[in-house]
Amino acid sequence: MNVLQRLQAFFAILGHYPSYILAYFFETLFMIIFVTVMLIVMIYLFRKYMARVQLRIGPNRVGKFGSLQLIADALKLVGKESILPRKRDDLPYRVAPIVVFLGLIMAFAIIPYGDFYYIGSLTVTHSNVSLLLLFAAIAIMPIGEVLAGVSSNNKYAVIGALRGVAKDISFEVPMMMSVLALVMMASARTSEPLNLTNLISVQSIPYGIPQIIGLGVFFIAMVARASYSPFDMSESDSELVSGHSIEYSGMRFGMFYMGMFGSIFLGSMIVSLLYLGGYNGPFSGDAGFIYLLIKAMILVIISFTIWLSVPRIRIDKFVNMGWKYLLPAAVINLVIAGILTLGLSL
């Protein structure tokens, strides 16, 4: 029994359809609250982790161990005057941060979360093609970034948007190829391999072990999607100041910032779902959600370490890498997956 069914049972007096509508509404609300809390945790964790790796202490003045620092920062961002560039393209300029943030929330609404003791699973969407939906939702975020870059009428922003487009095209093809290999392996076991829940539940061993190449390709793609170092060409601090989000301030900038941390968390969740067994694990039982969270957090820490220690790769080298190394690697991975599926029927 998951959260949706519980909520529906709670509202059952109102009739069938109103109860479902209300149940979906409240479940989405819970999910958004969960994502927001996780974002705050992520940003706090990042700042603390970065500080400790750099032998500093990090936020420690607001609240115990600086735990309220993020709230203070968020209040500051909300209270800030939003400075709008004069020659902007108004509608896209205002829509862009919302598109980025909505894409993120949509992706979080699609991934399955696994059970958590009495509460049950927080999964919002129960679709037969949730894998496709997930990647469709992820593909929305770059649109927001491109909109932001083009509409703010700034040369840095345009260059950032152009780099973003070049980057997205070159990593998304290998990413989908490596996902294809997953579907191929899963299709031997289930008739609905595009359903994420099915795809995860049929993993007898985590798919990251037979598909180590695919895991690497997919992880690199997720790093590129979240656009932090080494693949932060589109918002490179030291070159384009902050790329597509250069003309944004106040809460609009905050949305881009949260979008970035959100996509790190999202990427870690997806990698641990697809390749590391997701909420499966020994003694998982009712605690699948905790398993998922632990796996995702380990990946998040790895991502932070990469972010902090690696220089930025040049955009042409990245495009080269995408087409010349990642794509062939993904194809090889596909072949290996095919052999494993047919020969060993894993």
Binding site: Q54, R56, S229, D232, S309, V310, R312
Partner: peptide, 16 residues
Amino acid sequence: FGLDLGMLTPFFYCFI
């Protein structure tokens, strides 16, 4: 120079 290239951390080790 590390910061120019996008490396955030060696900067601090140098300054220490």
